[in-house]
Amino acid sequence: MVPGTEGADMSGYAIQTHELTKRFDGERALDRLNLAVPHGSVFGLMGPNGAGKSTLIRLLLGLLQPTAGGGEVLGRSITELSGDWRKDVGYVADYQNFFPHYKVSELLAFCAKLYPNWDDKRCRDLLDVFKIAPEKRVRSLSKGMKTQLALVISVAMRPKLLLLDEPTSGLDPVMKHHFKQLVLQVAASGDTTVFFSTHNLHDLEQMADHVAVLMKGKLLFTRSLDELKANTRKIQAVFSEGLPDAIRQAPGVLSVQEQGKVSTIVVQDHAAEVMSLIEAHRPAFVETVDLSLEEIFIQMMGKEGYAHDAAFQLE
């Protein structure tokens, strides 16, 4: 082992889970989850409310214990008792539980003593960006301002991993923009992996470079966002005698819709092969159309049998 790497994650992943399972009263909130989050990525976990996103984040932080399976964060087991690796993990919850009677300045002074890499200048600069007055009592802050304050704390500690649970909930459009820009700046440094949960496709498209989809505790798929967009295509073709079965049953076909003689085929990962097959059947007309991220998700969820359960939001 290279000196100084004891306890470090040498796998290339900031987060890994192995058959991670969590049950509450016999019900599975997470079901045998196998997830790998690359170092330095901005990784979006997509899913509707109740999918298990918050449960996963709390398991990663050690706030909950797994029913079965396990995982590592920054190369350390999520069940490790010492928990000293948490000094390198920033966390913005979906709801903030700060000491309500503290002034903002008192809360920040308290946090500065907890984290060895605390950056006081960065903290002051971020308070100015979000217009949070240090003399205000925490209890007087709105939900959105508490979320901003949580991000200030999480960034000022200079984390190696930043965990965000529905981070833009409760923020007005201007503050939401500042929030996203700050997260992207943190990620651009290359020193911090960002992992955030959301049910908002707009947030996902603006922030993430990798994405996973969680439904009813199950991981449906995980991909690079660029790869997902590049490898999913909609092909429209006109056949005089209808769509041949060989095309309908071709590998990678997510869905087929027919309206008269016009067939619309959505295909993933095998667009070139399907296009060659279509052309071999001599269509009267054929064209390839890019899909929006919303359309891609709807198609993939439909293929998995969850089309009617998805509750994605666009702004």
Rank of each mutant, 00 (worst) to 15 (best):
M215W: 06
S197N: 11
L162E: 05
A133H: 15
V194R: 00
A208W: 03
H178E: 15
M145D: 11
P173Y: 05
M207L: 08
D203V: 02
G217D: 09
V186N: 14
I153K: 12
Q181R: 14
L214H: 05
L162S: 10
G170H: 05
P159A: 10
F179E: 08
V183K: 10
M175S: 14
D172K: 04
E135F: 11
A156R: 00
T147P: 01
S169W: 07
V152E: 02
V138Y: 02
F179W: 04
K180I: 07
E166W: 02
K180F: 08
D191N: 13
L204Y: 04
G190I: 06
Q181M: 15
L149F: 03
L126G: 13
Q181P: 05
K180G: 09
L141S: 12
K143H: 15
T193M: 04
L141K: 13
R139Y: 13
K160N: 07
D203W: 01
L149A: 08
I153A: 06
Q185H: 12
M215N: 12
A188I: 11
G190L: 10
A208L: 03
H178R: 13
L151G: 07
D125H: 08
L151H: 00
A150V: 01
R137E: 13
K143F: 05
A150F: 06
I153S: 09
E166D: 12
Q181Y: 05
P167T: 00
L127A: 14
K136Y: 14
P134R: 12
L201F: 02
V155Q: 04
L164D: 04
H199M: 11
D165K: 02
T198G: 09
K216H: 15
V155H: 03
K146P: 00
D128N: 12
T193Y: 08
M207Q: 03
L171Q: 04
Q185E: 15
H202D: 13
H210Y: 03
L126S: 07
L164N: 01
S169Y: 07
D209N: 14
S189R: 13
V183E: 14
N200Q: 07
S169T: 10
L151A: 07
K143G: 11
M145W: 00
V183G: 08
A188P: 01
T168A: 11
A208T: 00
L182Q: 15
S189I: 08
K136V: 13
E135L: 12
V194S: 07
V211T: 02
L184T: 10
V138G: 10
S197L: 05
A133Q: 14
A208H: 04
A150T: 06
N200P: 02
A150G: 14
K176Y: 04
